[in-house]
């Protein structure tokens, strides 16, 4: 589904990613861990097409297409979803409106008709229940005045509505208390099936207690320094990142 080869990217001429190789198949859940500044969020930004990052080398193939050749909105419509580390506030635009616009843009891209307003409401209400969100949320402006936890839950709600084929979760667990984390995990787990893949970027092992990954990778100094299964995450929890950083440096 996703194949990243020798990816190099920089911000303002400072190289951040220095040769990432990663392959994700349908139905797999991958976790990328790593210390601050290792390039985790850069990877998420490059995948989504944020122009802040310049790709200097390498390729990314997504469902047999050259991802780097696609516009941000087309990547989204093709099924790539990014849950933002810092979800953006858009004053004056309510959540329902944004979601409807996003859903219909995607349906149009796939040659499907516009979503019926009634179907939309039925669908979103059941998802909101799953995410433990009250109904007045629909009328509130996108992320405006939301608490940190609400913003993250909103990201996952959007994800469950848009039903992506590949979801990239950028530190969705950061700053969440345990209850909120459980709700977020519940949202993610409800979407897991053999067609859909996840790339979870996280700093903490804790998230992986609730969303069990198939693979764990450690990003250090712009490269994947180590890959393994869940045991690797537990080891990181015990030993921290320093030993890996040192290994990479050698």
């Amino acid at each position: 589904m996703l194949k990243i080869e020798n990816l190099h990217a920089s911000v303002d001429d400072t190289p951040i990613l220095k040769g990432i190789n990663l392959q994700i198949s349908a139905g797999e859940v991958h976790a990328i861990m790593g210390p601050n500044g290792s390039g985790k969020s850069t990877l998420a930004g490059v995948l989504a097409g944020n122009e802040r990052y310049t790709v200097t080398d390498g390729t990314i193939t997504f469902q047999d297409n050259d991802l780097l050749d696609m516009k941000t909105e087309d990547r989204a419509r093709a099924g790539l979803f990014l849950a933002f580390q810092y979800p953006v506030e858009i004053p004056g635009v309510n959540n329902a409106y944004l979601l409807k616009a996003a859903l219909n843009a995607r349906r149009q891209y796939r040659g499907e008709g516009q979503l019926d307003a009634f179907d939309f409401l039925t669908q979103i209400k059941s998802k909101m229940k799953l995410m433990d969100m009250s109904e007045d949320f629909l009328k509130r402006d996108v992320n405006a005045g939301f608490s940190g936890g609400e913003k993250k839950r909103n990201e996952i709600l959007q994800m469950t509505m848009l039903e992506p084929t590949l979801a990239v979760l950028d530190e969705t667990d950061s700053g969440l208390d345990i209850d909120a984390l459980k709700i977020v995990a519940q949202g993610v787990n409800s979407l897991r099936d053999e067609q859909r893949s996840f790339l979870m970027i996280t700093h903490y092992q804790r998230l992986l207690d609730y969303i069990q990954p198939d693979f764990v990778h450690v990003l250090a100094n712009g490269r994947i320094a180590k890959s393994g299964d869940r045991a690797l995450a537990l080891e990181l929890e015990d030993r921290g990142y320093d030993w890996i950083t040192r290994e990479v440096a050698v």
Binding site: K71, T72, A76, F81, A101
Partner: peptide, 13 residues
């Protein structure tokens, strides 16, 4: 950042 957020949700520019 607002524009990018909307684009990432598949909404045209």
């Amino acid at each position: 950042d607002q524009l990018f957020y909307c684009l990432q949700r598949g909404i045209s520019e």
